[in-house]
Design a protein around this nucleic acid. Structure first.
Lengths: 115, 115
DNA sequence: TTGATATGCAACCATTTGGTTTCACATTAG
DNA sequence: CTAATGTGAAACCAAATGGTTGCATATCAA
């Protein structure tokens, strides 16, 4: 059984902006995917993509700014670790949207049932 | 009971990029939220935000490109309707990420249980 | 100590984004 | 018919994005 942490009460627009913005890039999504299951150093990650080390470093900065990954010093390297909390924040918002939509349908059903 | 449509098998990187990119803006999220529960014309929506009609129109174009809303002609106006399918695509991806993370924890638990 | 590795950061550049104003066109109301 | 309304699209602009190269610094290995 896994213990889930309490969610923050409200998400600021900026915070949500940053999370979705960070997820809107295939390389960054790949980094999140990898580091959710296995910590990696920045150079480990940089080797995997066909772009400069600095470019990958920038992607990681974007992800860190969105809270999607965290950095942990380990000697001369930094281990990058995916953070499921930020994922959950995005899920929470999308779930709210789906609930809204279902609500509309339910109201429509109720209306039709009135006959 | 609500009938759910079958999901597309694979999501291209571009498609996912567009969906998350479109969601990375508070005005656009607000438009999605509104139109999921209630269709609106473009000018209806434009009145609600402190920016030009053309700016709102552009946001709607971005949302349409991501499949998050659809346009439906109605006389001289176009009704904008939120599309829950695109929302679900994003949910599906985030759920996969969370499963990955839980998988890591499960493996860790198993490892610890070996003692 | 010295060289190799890992990271950080600045400067630069092309493209995209998010806004504007303006004009054209279609449709509806009077 | 004419005027008002709703939409589309172009041209323009500042700022952000996503990449580059180059250099500085920190740490580890030999």
């Amino acid at each position: 059984m896994v213990a889930y942490q309490a969610q923050q009460r409200t998400l600021s627009d900026d915070e949500v902006d940053r999370i979705f913005r960070a997820l809107a890039d295939a390389t960054r999504r790949d980094i999140v995917r990898r580091t959710l299951t296995e910590e990696s150093s920045i150079s480990d990650l940089a080797h995997r993509y066909e772009m400069s080390f600095a470019a990958v470093q920038k992607h990681i900065t974007v992800l860190e700014g969105a809270g999607l990954v965290t950095k942990h010093r380990n000697g001369r390297e930094r281990r990058i670790r995916g953070n499921p909390d930020a994922i959950r924040k995005a899920q929470t918002l999308l779930n709210a949207y789906e609930r809204l939509w279902r609500g509309r349908i339910d109201r429509l059903d109720a209306l039709l049932a009135e006959d």
